[in-house]
């Protein structure tokens, strides 16, 4: 049993990381009061831009190509998220519908462009990140085997972003203002906070993180852009709610999804799990999410103003 856990742990973490960073992006956006169900589309944009950049650069700059690809994915995510920011902040559009439009545009436009570039609509990169053992730490008993062997560089980057985000959201003036905009924008406004600006920044951060999420998925376990991200963006959105709009809650929720999905994926080759019907393993994360939503519904920590357009003159 222990061997199995040690074997699947790196895969579970690899699957968790894109979910984590995307959900973290959603956290910024929703905490500022803008619901962003376009996370899936933003991930697709990130995966596409990352794949294209790495595909073009890898022959020239084999070492730096992946990092440049990740950066390009973040920038593309930011640019694309501006569509959502403009619609939901300036035009008071229904944020859920605008997010749906983002998902549809991203899915269609990226494949359209990819087809113009490669013909098949898929973009395969030559190689992604390698897996490395962390020196010294990997030899710690128990923990070393689980957390510090076979890791991707991107994993550490995302965990670092998680730490910084927790600090920014809870320990800085900007974080306080951002949360105020999501709870009571008019109070924030009367205290001199520019609600529009804060929400714009928050949505752009969600774009950058989701773009990064899509690209991380590409350079770790998928290796190919195929026009979708297997619905991970929606799963990230569920993890955001499951994690009750808190950084550590999100970490727990995304790791749960990562672990449950990995178990379902490897169940065929693990004798202990092969006895459980595949269907049960596959639907397990979704059913648990539904149950969790029911349990948390009584004490929901949802930002109070999430989804509501900010109207300066409204009282």
């Amino acid at each position: 049993m222990w061997n199995i856990i040690v074997q699947i742990f790196p895969y579970a973490i690899a699957f968790t990381i894109p979910l984590l960073i995307t959900a973290l992006g959603g956290l910024y956006s929703e905490r500022s009061g803008v619901v962003n169900i376009g996370l899936d589309g933003l991930m697709i944009v990130g995966a596409f831009t990352g794949a294209l950049t790495i595909f073009k650069l890898q022959p020239i700059l084999p070492d730096a190509a992946i990092w440049i690809g990740l950066l390009a994915a973040m920038i593309a995510g930011i640019l694309f998220s501006l569509l959502h920011a403009f619609a939901s902040i300036n035009l008071n559009a229904n944020q859920v519908i605008s997010g749906t439009a983002i998902n549809m545009i991203a899915g269609a436009l990226t494949v359209f462009l990819a087809r113009n570039i490669t013909g098949s609509g898929n973009i395969r990169i030559i190689s992604g990140f390698g897996r490395n053992d962390i020196p010294v730490l990997s030899s710690i008993p128990v923990i070393g085997k689980l957390f510090f062997t076979q890791t991707y560089a991107s994993t550490w980057l995302v965990l670092l972003i998680l730490l910084i985000s927790t600090f920014v959201l809870y320990k800085t003036a900007f974080g306080l203002r951002l949360r105020a905009c999501g709870e009571h924008p008019h109070a924030a406004d009367s205290a001199g906070v520019n609600v529009y600006k804060v929400r714009y920044i928050a949505v752009m951060i969600s774009g950058a993180f989701s773009g990064l999420g899509g690209a991380v998925m590409l350079v770790t376990f998928s290796g190919e852009f195929t026009g979708n991200v297997a619905g991970l963006g929606f799963l990230a959105l569920a993890a955001l709610i499951f994690g009750q709009w808190k950084p550590l809650g999100i970490l727990g929720a995304t790791f749960f999804f990562g672990f449950a999905s990995t178990i379902a994926n490897v169940s065929q080759v693990v004798p202990v799990l092969a006895a459980i019907p595949g269907l049960i393993l596959k639907v397990f994360p979704y059913i648990v999410t539904l149950i969790a939503l029911v349990i948390f519904s009584k004490s929901s920590q949802a930002p109070r103003a999430a989804g509501e357009p900010f109207d300066h003159g409204k009282r």
């Binding site: 619609a87 229904n94 605008s98 439009a101 983002i102 549809m104 494949v111 359209f112």
Partner: peptide, 22 residues
């Protein structure tokens, strides 16, 4: 022209319908 242009057009229409205020 790749066939995905149809999906792209539809998605763009939806964005404009969503931002009907404009």
């Amino acid at each position: 022209i790749p066939p995905e242009i149809a999906d792209t057009i539809i998605a763009t229409i939806i964005y404009f319908a969503a931002t009907s205020v404009m």
